[in-house]
Design a protein around this nucleic acid. Structure first.
Length: 541
RNA sequence: GCCCUCGUAGCUCAGUUGGAUAGAGCACCGGACUUCUAAUCCGAUGGUCGCAGGUUCGAAUCCUGCCGAGGGCGCCA
């Protein structure tokens, strides 16, 4: 296990020696010292901007300070460092012996599926709520982004040491449910649905499935939820809890919440309604909790729901909402604060809307009308892996355009094939080797120092960066960074595959063994990345 | 009118909490298979990072204003 931390120590070691050098120069270095992997190879393996950051306090031009730091560093150079130089405005660039990358490779192979894992979460309990919708119809394609994002974020949090539960909030209370039940009942009786009812074909289909003696509301909800659970499971999305809004009415949780709010003095009556004093907590205006007709607003059950989440012992609540709900965030945050919680313990991530195109024109999604592309249609047509990877391709806070024709087509415009192909190629090496009777030796008997080709080192550099990528991705709640990384690694694998044969007769067996293990390590990286995205990697394509 | 998110190559998008000459894929052009999968690789072309100021050693990134796109501003859900 000591070995596992070898390469992570590489960075720590460099930081420590920089700090030591600063100390010897009498420069206060309590600020964070950052080491980045430069984009350009000629800038070395690691680069630091300490000299730029501390130039002012040291009273020296950056390059002069950099020179002083380097002269100190050279008295006791860290392991693997072959050269330290000054570049540009005053960057301190470290050039390392490739052997450090060979140690990275050993780490990857030792850690396997745990490679890239960290413990920034430190056991923090997080509840991720996503998709949450009315059980009045099939989950539609518009929910796909939130579903895939929420699940992948949950995977990322788990991978970073959080305890995570996934939850689906069922909005099974209110007028919509009754309209839905009435529409079902009407179709069952062979009638048109009510004026404001649900017009979709699925209502007709579902009514036909509904037993004669069934209660349309109860049966309809159960049916909708069963279908939702089914299709989400197909998408590799599973929930720990399906939380019913109506259950809070039945359990008295709403009354308890009202009493709690009253006790805190954050509610008042006016004009026959009960209000939350949300302006005290940064909201634009106070919000009605109970309407003058005695009905609850949408907000009250939501407050009770979030109160329940905290009561269940979660430290952090993450809600993934569609862009059409973002105006709701300030009042929800105000509500959480009015309950006595730190508002930063509620994070609401707004997923921008997805525009679906087919044949160059936009496909509108609307549940009320008959024009409905369901999540099931999407998964049937496109396939789970392509759906997930496509939706995780870019940041969730930019509007996304998905061209269905493109995603469906098995063309090389589709990144999922690019990535899966890399994995299939790695696996094919093992298969062909078995056919030819070539055996792989134990890792300990293989000389990794033979890996000096640029293509080989690029694969290792890419693998090394996973730790950083995971840290940043989880910190910023951005699973798409994993997608970007996986595509990069796949690119490195393809480049290697093209230029560096493994099993060919022309390759010396010593080198062959080292390359073979290199591909095993790359396979580990792809596996880790893809599993964070919930995408499978077939053995062959 | 006010609030939120966004604006990067022809198209779809990355861009490591402010870094060095802004990167991929697709499309277009030119190359590479006697080889472990050519669903791949290599090269070329392509940019006023919406516009204008500001902050500083340094800005696609931070601040202000403007322009443009989408979303939100209910005793609806």
């Amino acid at each position: 296990m000591l070995n596992s931390y070898r390469h992570r120590n590489m960075r720590t070691e460099l930081v420590n020696s920089i700090r030591k050098a600063l100390g010897e120069l009498g420069i206060d270095s309590d600020g964070e010292i950052l080491l980045e992997q430069p984009a350009r190879r000629e800038h070395g393996d690691f680069s630091s901007n300490v000299a730029l950051k501390n130039a002012k306090s040291a009273g020296l031009p950056p390059r002069d300070l950099a020179a002083k730091i380097i002269s100190k560093l050279e008295t006791d150079p860290p392991k693997y460092v072959t050269k330290v130089d000054i570049a540009g405005p005053g960057f301190v660039n470290f050039h390392l012996d490739p052997a450090w990358l060979h140690s990275v490779m050993e780490t990857v192979l030792e850690q396997g599926a745990d490679f890239g894992r960290n413990n920034v979460g430190d056991g923090r309990r997080v509840l991720v709520e996503f998709v949450s919708s009315n059980p009045t119809g099939p989950v539609h394609a518009g929910h796909a982004r939130g579903a895939v994002f929420g699940d992948s974020l949950a995977r990322l949090l788990e991978f970073s040491g959080h305890y995570v539960e996934r939850e689906f909030y069922i909005n099974d209370r209110g007028v919509q449910m009754q309209t839905f039940a009435d529409s079902l009942a009407a179709r069952k009786a062979g009638l048109e649905p009510p004026e404001d009812g649900y017009q979709g074909q699925y209502i007709i289909d579902w009514a036909a499935e509904m037993p004669d003696d069934a209660d349309p509301l109860a049966w309809g909800e159960a049916h909708a939820l069963a279908k939702a659970e089914d299709v989400l499971k197909r998408l590799n999305v599973t929930y720990d809890t399906w939380f019913s809004e109506r259950s809070m009415v039945d359990s008295g949780a709403i009354d308890v919440t009202l009493a709690d709010l009253a006790e805190r003095g954050v509610t008042y009556e006016s004009e026959g309604a009960l209000w939350l004093r949300s302006t005290d907590y940064g909201d634009d205006k106070d919000r009605v909790l109970i309407k003058s007709d005695g009905e609850y607003t949408y907000l009250l059950p939501d407050i009770a729901y979030h109160r329940d989440k905290f009561a269940r012992g979660f430290d952090l609540l993450i809600n993934v909402w569609g862009a059409d709900h973002h105006g709701y965030v300030p009042r929800m945050r105000a509500a959480v604060e009015s309950l006595g919680h730190d508002p930063s313990d509620l994070e609401v991530i707004i997923s921008q809307l997805v525009r679906l195109e087919q044949g160059g024109t936009e496909v509108k999604i609307s549940k009320r009308s008959g024009n409905l592309i369901t999540l099931e249609d999407l998964v049937d047509e496109v396939g789970v892996d392509a759906v997930r990877l496509t939706y995780l391709l870019q940041s969730v806070d930019t509007p996304q355009t998905v061209d269905l024709d493109l995603v469906v087509s098995q063309s090389n415009e589709n990144p999922v094939f690019y990535v899966q192909m890399a994995n299939a190629r790695i696996r094919s090496i093992g298969r062909v080797a078995a056919d030819r009777g070539i055996e792989r030796r134990e890792l300990g008997e293989v000389d990794l120092s033979l890996l000096t080709h640029d293509r080989e080192l690029e694969v290792l550099r890419s693998l090394f960066s996973l730790n950083d990528v995971v840290s940043v991705a989880v910190r910023d709640r951005e699973p798409h960074r994993i997608t970007t990384w996986v595509r990069e690694l796949a690119g490195c694998v393809h480049g290697f595959y093209h230029d560096c044969p493994v099993l060919a007769d022309s390759v010396d067996d010593e080198l062959r063994q080292a390359r073979w293990w290199l591909m095993e390590a790359a396979g580990v990286g792809l596996l880790v990345g893809l599993s964070l995205l919930g995408v499978d990697a077939p053995e062959r394509m």
